[in-house]
């Protein structure tokens, strides 16, 4: 190369602290967690004797963890599907050049400004089942007043609903964000394309179906990645809204990890859950990174 110019020296010096910090505090600790997850550290006395995959084996045998995995899959599928559909729908509606579009855009986007803790507390009240003796509250009260008592349910206290109620709250918070992404994408599609299609006799529905949606594919992919990793790691919403729930019907791996590490002092088991979470998020993100890297090279 052309030797060390001041430019290169300063740029290396400027980037070095964060590179070193990330190397230690991110990758170093991932490695440390991986090691702990293979060790026999169970209690306050640090014990780093390796025991192979025994912690993982035991974890998958634990009923609570099996329920958690099941819950995570349910939650992720529901949350992704409903956020994408509602987000797209809102974006299409806002795309119709309605009046005071800015106002509606803000309204739909506002929930995202809240933290999951706030959302959790609010939805805990809204979806509180109430009881026969003390009367209905929240959404159930609304159903009562509207004469729709049939629709009342136990929400998150009903094990057959459980985590799905949490997905409602998460969807409420994140679908506005998906809408913003889709709307930006739609605005990026040149008007000429629509015009051309109209000239060719395509109906508005066909335009969305055959032109807009295919062009929005990269946005759908980004949305799936962003929502997906939020959903796999979800903790704060569950913690504020329901806790582990009746028979763990709203429990998630991250909550179990906190419980077992800091209440049960099972450090190795906690580390094993952390590694499984990491792997599941990696399974989602790495193909995406590879894909974007490839498309960038092609460009």
């Amino acid at each position: 190369m052309r030797g060390l110019t001041w430019d290169r020296v300063t740029s290396i010096l400027l980037i070095a602290p964060s590179a070193i910090a990330i190397l230690i505090f991110v990758y170093g600790f991932i490695g440390w967690t991986g090691w702990v997850s293979l060790a026999r550290w169970d209690g306050m006395l640090q014990d780093l004797t390796l025991v192979g995959l025994r912690n993982y084996q035991k974890l998958f045998d634990t009923e609570r963890f099996q329920i958690d995995l099941h819950n995570t899959v349910t939650f992720t599928l529901l949350f992704l599907a409903s956020s994408l559909v509602i987000g797209l729908l809102l974006a299409v509606l806002l795309d119709q050049r309605i009046r005071s579009e800015g106002l509606f855009r803000s309204i739909y986007l506002f929930p995202m400004a809240l933290s999951f803790i706030v959302t959790g507390v609010v939805w805990r009240w809204l979806l509180n089942p109430g009881s026969r003796e003390l009367g209905s509250v929240g959404v159930n009260l609304l159903f009562d007043k509207a004469g729709l008592g049939l629709l009342k349910s136990g929400w998150y206290t009903d094990p057959s609903i459980g985590i799905k109620a949490v997905a409602i709250a998460a969807t409420w918070q994140m679908s506005g964000y998906v809408m913003a992404m889709y709307l930006a994408g739609m605005r990026g599609i040149p008007e000429d394309l629509r015009e051309a299609a109209r000239v060719d006799g395509a109906s508005e529905l066909e335009i969305y179906r055959h032109i807009i949606l295919p062009l929005l594919q990269p946005i759908t992919l980004s949305a799936v990645i962003i929502l997906g990793h939020i959903s796999l790691k979800i903790f704060d919403l569950v913690s504020a809204m329901t806790g582990p729930g009746l028979g763990f019907c709203t429990d998630v791996p991250a909550y179990f990890m906190f419980d077992t590490t800091f209440r049960g002092n099972h450090f190795s088991q906690g580390a094993a859950i952390a590694i499984i979470l990491l792997l599941s998020v990696a399974a989602l993100i790495i193909p995406y990174l590879v894909y974007t890297a490839r498309t960038e090279v092609q460009r």
């Binding site: 209690g43 009746l246 763990f248 049960g264 002092n265 099972h266």
Partner: peptide, 19 residues
């Protein structure tokens, strides 16, 4: 009981309430 035991006991009873 130790915290580890108490946690396992707590989780077991939590499941019992449901099942």
């Amino acid at each position: 009981a130790s915290e580890g035991w108490a946690t396992a006991y707590k989780d077991t009873i939590a499941v019992f309430v449901a099942k």
